[in-house]
């Protein structure tokens, strides 16, 4: 099944106000998207609130989706991430970050195998593998788990300024590598 081919016409229908199409998107994507929100919030109630916010945003912004600029899955997930990040910020990011399953293991290049195996996924994986482990880990903790600079610094037992600089440097090297 080609999910992208499936979701794109559904998003156009949602842009025209079609609630059944929105529900079809929910049914196809809610497990994946709830996982995205819960990875950031680590609280199912908060993640449900974030997913609700996200679906309201999806309903109102579906007309902005442009299939020539990216996959519908990525567009949907970006909206969910921003909704979850807004909620994490509103809660002062007072979200447990001492979960032992949460990034205490180094993010080895092999651990990134779950990153999608398509061409973009492979390129990102290869580029992440060229970064120092601490940069790679900081980027994953922030992007996937919504940790702030301060939380990452606490987790890695490093000064805040150092972490900020490393992450920024890691991002710029990633961009060079992907260009």
């Amino acid at each position: 099944m080609d999910a992208a081919a499936d979701l794109t016409p559904l998003l156009s229908a949602v842009a025209g106000g079609d609630r059944i199409a929105l529900r079809a998107i929910y049914e196809r994507q809610s497990t994946r998207l709830f996982g995205v929100a819960n990875a950031i919030l680590r609280d199912r109630d908060a993640a449900a609130d974030a997913l609700q916010d996200a679906f309201l945003r999806i309903a109102h912004r579906a007309h902005q989706f442009d299939a020539s600029r990216g996959a519908p899955e990525a567009w949907l997930a970006a909206i969910v991430r921003y909704a979850a990040l807004d909620m994490a910020r509103a809660r002062g990011r007072e979200i447990p970050s001492d979960d032992p399953a949460l990034g205490d293991q180094p993010v080895e290049p092999e651990a990134l195998e779950r990153v999608s195996a398509d061409a973009e996924g492979r390129r990102l994986r290869n580029c992440l593998a060229t970064l120092e482990e601490r940069n790679r880990r900081g980027i994953v903790l922030a992007f996937v788990h919504g940790l702030s600079h301060a939380q990452i610094a606490a987790k890695m037992e490093l000064p805040l300024g150092t972490v900020k600089a490393w992450i920024r440097r890691g991002l710029l090297r990633l961009r060079e590598c992907l260009t």
Partner: peptide, 17 residues
């Protein structure tokens, strides 16, 4: 967004309530 999108796959899927 396009550069980092593949990382989304690292979030384990989970059924909503």
């Amino acid at each position: 967004e396009a550069r980092l999108a593949p990382l989304i796959a690292l979030a384990p899927p989970e059924a909503p309530p």
